[in-house]
Structure formats: structure tokens, C-alpha cells
Design a binder for these strands. Structure first.
Lengths: 195, 195, 195, 195
DNA sequence: TATGAATGAGACTTCATTCAT
DNA sequence: TATGAATGAAGTCTCATTCAT
């Protein structure tokens, strides 16, 4: 009978908080900041989230669920290395890079406020399971051990995200297209996969 | 003598603050925290630094100066690609990775509290000037444009730092040796440089 | 029919609020607390009471009216000292002590939120008028002045209530039966009334 | 070298808080209230007490230590029933009643914020040990069991405190002298002790 | 009428910085 | 110079009450 919780309001809060947390950091962003930018009264934030910490946790958890969902979807419906890398480069990474604020928060604040180690493990095993067959086919990777592969994935994944993030934050001339182009070249040359 | 004591105290403050800023973030670390952990009175902090912000700026600036100094030194006294990469892999990066707290602060807080864009530009041009001759010699890099190279450097540099950082924070099995080993392999295979 | 339902709800609110106010205090109990425990929506509370303060005032006033009603009833229909004290000890006090929450609220919050001084005056004159004839008959009370009597009534009345309350709150071995037994003895020995 | 903690300031805080907690209740008294009345900045309260709760606990614990100290002192240096009751009536109770705020807080808030049950047990055994020999001597008490005695002590103790408290709060004509006078009479008549 | 989301004043507490000692 | 108590602005969160639904 009373007003229903507004999904629109909740979204506004999440989006505003995500932006401010990414720009200024979690601790440096006050709930009042979020309320002011979102043009909502402070109390409303607490109608939708029981605490500032629950807010960041929701942002990270929901972003992560979305991220993992896309990844699993990609891997579930495709087969050949060409297709997998094509999806990664043309769909998955562009979408991920479009939500750079989520990445920034995950990397900067995730360690303290969320279980980033679980997420890293999860990601690692998910990717490994997909890449294992590929790496066995690529003759250029014969020298790489399993640990090398893990390290490689981490370096490329975090490198790409970090590069785009810093380029944007520091206003460098490098764009996310450039980074993806480099990645494409690396895969083509390093793994001999035609994409 | 009084001077020597002062330097020791200043060092204690810097090291303590660096650790705490890296672990908890700048905003979440209070000056009282630093004083308590450093076993110094709060007032002493203000004898050496005029504000909390000056403290983080000093940490970042001094760390950066040290970092750039090592880099320039490496490049000034060496010539061949093999030597350059050898130095990078055997001396420079291990030393840098040993001071992970500095990196963490630079990447997490640098954007807000220091001029990270200047540093990125500086690093970019410095590295480019060194790598330009190398890339011209490497036949495998003939497809790479200048922008690709910039992107590549960013990806590898931030990828290596990020990988080591996340591996440590998330308690992954990957170590910084693994990451450097992967990097060695990449350089060997990708650039055809024997190291 | 709607009326019956209303009374039931109103009762639930009053009983729940009385318990919580007694346990936690008025200021420490939120309207939302009451609603949650009573399993009613917050809005319902305001259908029956215009404010939180009106709620406590209603509790105290209605409890007091009930209390005074029982007292007057006892005194109106009985005569001899034996009968009066019998009623007090066997009916009135046991009933009063069964509603300890009311007493707790009256003593703890009554001073601020209700006119406890009026109630005290009222009680004092009511009791005095009943006890006056008795004390004139008891030879052992010949040394007691009117003021002594007032003090005596206060001490015994508040002493009994306080003892039962503290015994319960502090989980002492003394029970309300013990307290009443002591009171019976005191009256028997002190006033020479056979009960 | 820096300013020393001021006992005077701490006292002001304690006395102010004690008064306000007694008058309005703990929950209804804000730290800002205390600061305003004490004419101190809010922050200063937290220089001396780590929280509002620690403040009330300090008040209760220190008041209780003082109270118990006086009681033990009285009992340690005296012997005869006459002396004991004399001390109680002429020194101990008047001093206790002079600090009515402490009593009010102990009874109203002690249950939630301090371990009142421990204090009650402590008091009970302390008093019992003193009164045991007395009651054995008083022929008028031959009908009283140990439990009756415990109940009696509670009733008289809480009755006296409650009477004085309500009399003051409700502005009754009964004074604390009257209450003590009644108590003197009761002891004289009931126990046959000449005081 | 019944509901519970909405609101913003005000609660407790922290903290960077100052300055008396 | 060295110290840490002093300060009050600002932070997070609660809550009585209202009112759209």
C-alpha cells in the first residue's frame, strides 16, 4: 500500500557511488557527497543500503556477477580458439572496459572491502579451463609451464585494465582501442591465431 | 648528531606511513595511526611534514625520484638490447617489486594526490627513447606502430606490477619470480632477444 | 467488528511498548522496534497514538488509572485493619507486582514524561485517609508523627516495588513472595495486626 | 611536555554528566548536552572518555567504589549494633543520599549499562555479614528467616533511596531527614536498639 | 484505512591540525 | 624542540513522523 522501493532510485545511487568511489576512493567519498550528486536526501541512501560498506559491496558483487556471467556465456557457446579470442576482443573486453569504474573499485578497494582473493581464484580457474586446450595447440607456447600461463593471464588481464585506466586518468594519448589493438597483435603473433 | 636522529625519525615516519597507506589507503589511515605504529608522538609527524597530504606527496615523489634515478642510471651506462633487458629483469624490476607499497600507493592514491599524469608522460618518453632503437632491430615487431608500442609498454609494465600486487594481496600461488619468468619468456620469444 | 480488531491492535501496541520501554528505556526504544516486535507496520502505531510520547503517557495514565481503581475499590468495600491489610497483601500488591513493567516505567520515565508528582500526592492522600484510623488504633505507632507515616508509606511502597524489581533484574534469589512475606511479618510484628 | 590531562576538566564532565543522566536519563542526554552545560567543546569529552557508554560506566563504577569503600570502612572500625546503626544513620546514609544522582543512575540505568547484579550480590553479602550477629541478638527478630532478612534489607535500602528520590523529584513535603527519622524509629522499635 | 518509503535533524564519534607546556 | 591535550568540523548512521499509494 505504501510507496514501493524505486529501482530507478537504487540505480541512481549505485551509479553515482560507483563513479565517486572510482574517482576519489571509497574512504574519501562521503555519503553526503553521493547524496548531493545523486540529488537525493542523505536518508534515502540508507533506505536502499544499510551502510556505506554494504553499498560498495553491492557495487562490487553485482559488477562481478555481471562480469562473470558474460564470461561464462561467452565460453559456453563457442568452441574454436579463433571464436574465443574473437569474443574476448570484440565483445567481452570492450564491454568490461566500458565499465572502468567497476574495475577501478575492484582493484583499489576490493582488497579491503570484498573478497578479491576468491574472485581471483574463481577467474583463474575459469580462464584456465578454457585456455588449456588452446595452449596445447599453440606450438609457440611449448616453453610455457602452467605457472607461466597463470602469470601470463594475470599480466595481460591486469595490464590491459591498468593501461586503459591510467591512460584515461592521466589523459594519455593511448586509448582503449590502442590497447585492444596491441592485444590483438600479441595474440596473432604470439599464439599464431588468426583474428 | 641531532641531524642523524632527525633523519632516522623522518625515515620511520615515511616507512610506517607508506606501509599503512598501502594497506589501508590514504584516507583510511589517520595521522594518529601512523604515530602509534611508528611509536612516535603525533606532534613529531608535524615536525617533519606540514600536513598529511605533504606526507603522501613526499612518499610518492621520493619514491618516484628513486625509481626514475635507477631507470636512468640503467639506461645511461648500458647499450645492447640484451644488457638493457638483463638489467630490467635482473635488477630494476626486482628492486621495484620489492617496494610494492610504493607501487600500490602510486596506483591507488597517486591519481588523486599526486600528478600521476606527468609521471606517466615522463616514464613513457623515457622508456620510448630507450626502446626505439631496439624495436627497430627486432624483426618480429615490424607490424607494431608507435602507438602499439606505447600500449605494449603500459600493458606489460602495469600488468607486471598489478600481477605481483594482486598475487600478494589475494594470496595467489603466483609469485613475483613467476611473473618475471613469464616476462623473460615473452621477451625472448616475442623480441628474439637472448636473456 | 472493525472496532474489535482495532482494540486488539491497540492492546498489542501498548503491551509491546510497555515491555520494551521497561526493558530498554523510553528513549532507547524506537517506534520501529515496537512495530517490529508487535509485528505491525510502523504506520499503525500512528493510527492509534499521535506520537511516541503520547504512547508512553497512555501507558502510564492507563496503568495508573487501573492501579488507583483497584486501590479505591479495595478501600471502599472493606473496613477492619485486618481486611485492609489482607486485601493489600493478598490481592492488590500481587496484582501490582505482576505488572512490573508498568512500575518500572512509572519510576524510570514517569518523572520526565508524566506528572509523577501529581500521582504521588494523590497516592499519598488516598493512602493516608485509609491508614489514619488504623494508625490511631495501633499502640506501637504512638511515636510516629504524620510526617513519619508519610515517609513510612513511601519507604515501604517503593521498597517493596524496588526490591522485587531489582531482584528480578539482577536475578537475585529473593522472590516477590519473599518480599511479601517480609512485609506480612513487619505488619504483624510492627502493627500487631493478625494476618 | 604537552598539556597534562586536567583533573578539574574530567571532574566537570563527570559531575555534569551525572546530573544530566539522573535528570533526563542516559539515552535522552546527548554528548552535546553535556558539553554545552559543562561549557566545554564536544571533542574534549572524548579526550577524557572514549565513548558515552564509558562515561556512564565510569560514573557508576567510581560512585560504587566510593560507596563500598565507605561502607567497608564503617564496618571495619566499629563493633556494637548501636555503633553500626549510628554510623549508618548519621554518616553513611546521609552521605549516600547527598549523592542522589548516583543512586538514580544506578537504579535507572545500571541494569542495562553496568553489572548491577554483581553489585547487588556484593552489597547483599557485605551487609548480611555485618547484620548476622545483630539479628541473632534481637529477640524481636526471632521469626525472621535468612531470606526474610535479605528481603528486609532490600526493602529498607531501596525504600529509603526511592523515597528520597521520589520526594525530591515529585517535590513532596517529605524530606530526606524525615525518611531517616522514620528509619531511626523503625530500628529503635523493631530491633530494640537505642539510637 | 493501511502501509512502509521518504525525509532531514540530530546523535555519536573521529580526526587533522594547533599550541600550551 | 618535543609533546600530546584541545578543538570543532565533518563523517556515518538513526529515527520520529509524514504522506503517497
Amino acid at each position: 500500500m505504501a510507496r514501493a522501493l524505486s529501482n530507478e532510485k537504487r540505480n541512481t545511487i549505485v551509479e553515482t557511488a560507483k563513479r565517486l568511489f572510482a574517482e576519489q576512493g571509497f574512504a574519501a567519498t562521503s555519503v553526503a557527497d553521493i547524496a548531493r550528486v545523486a540529488e537525493l536526501p542523505v536518508g534515502s541512501i540508507y533506505t536502499y543500503f544499510s551502510s556505506k560498506e554494504e553499498l560498495i559491496r553491492s557495487i562490487v558483487d553485482e559488477g562481478w556477477a555481471d562480469f562473470r556471467g558474460r564470461l561464462q556465456e561467452s565460453f559456453a557457446t563457442t568452441r574454436s580458439p579463433e571464436e574465443i579470442f574473437g569474443l574476448l576482443l570484440d565483445t567481452f573486453l570492450p564491454e568490461l572496459l566500458a565499465d572502468l569504474d567497476f574495475i577501478t573499485i575492484l582493484l583499489n578497494e576490493g582488497i579491503v572491502y570484498t573478497h578479491i582473493e576468491e574472485k581471483a581464484q574463481e577467474l583463474s580457474s575459469l580462464i584456465s579451463s578454457v585456455f588449456a586446450p588452446i595452449t596445447r595447440q599453440a606450438p609457440s607456447l611449448k616453453d610455457f609451464t602452467g605457472t607461466d600461463m597463470e602469470a601470463a593471464l594475470l599480466v595481460y588481464f591486469l595490464g590491459v585494465l591498468g593501461a586503459v585506466r591510467v591512460a584515461k586518468a592521466a589523459n594519455l594519448s593511448v586509448t582503449s582501442s590502442d590497447v585492444l589493438a596491441f592485444l590483438r597483435l600479441s595474440i596473432r603473433n604470439g599464439l599464431g591465431i588468426a583474428i
